[in-house]
């Protein structure tokens, strides 16, 4: 969570993306000069299969207001099947998120291929807009007794 000088809420969103599809797609968005919200920070991983759900929990714990997880489309995985494992893992995790006090609406799962710069921009903008409406994620701070 961060506030700008005029006091408006600016959400912080952490994105966990795979190296081959979404990271490259985000590169393409850059080379195509597609303007998008500056609220997202990308963490590059080899594959969505590498993404541990605890990364997401950790991001929220550290103050993220939203999380994006994105990788290769089904059947397009650079590593053949890492994204399938990720898909199952996150389907399960979404069920659990509510229980852990995280509104599932704060988490975006998407497939963005290396050729979908425009889709990446949409994912970024949509997530930021959605999280902005939801307001800051404070549950974990409150638990920790921090303001």
């Amino acid at each position: 969570m961060a506030e700008t000088s005029n006091g408006a809420f600016e959400p912080k969103v952490t994105a966990f993306v795979c190296n081959w599809c979404t990271y490259t797609g985000a590169d393409l968005a850059g080379t195509s000069r597609l303007q998008m919200s500056p609220n997202v920070r990308i963490i590059r991983l080899p594959c969505t299969g590498r993404i541990d759900p605890l990364f997401i929990v950790k991001a929220f714990e550290r103050g993220a207001d939203g999380v994006i997880v994105s990788g290769c489309h089904p059947a397009d995985c650079h590593y053949t099947s890492g994204n399938y494992h990720a898909r199952r893992r996150f389907a399960l995790f979404l069920e659990l998120a509510g229980f852990m006090g995280i509104d599932p609406k704060r988490i975006t799962f998407s497939w963005v291929s290396a050729s979908e710069g425009g889709k990446w921009r949409d994912v970024v903008n949509d997530t930021v807009t959605r999280v902005r409406e939801l307001g800051p994620f404070t549950a974990y701070r409150e638990l920790a007794g921090k303001p």
Binding site: K12, T14, R41, I43, P46, R50, D52, F55, R62
Partner: peptide, 16 residues
Amino acid sequence: GFTDEQIYAAINALVL
């Protein structure tokens, strides 16, 4: 190259 240690360090540094 992508150990838990490295990734958590990166997450911790991102959002404070």
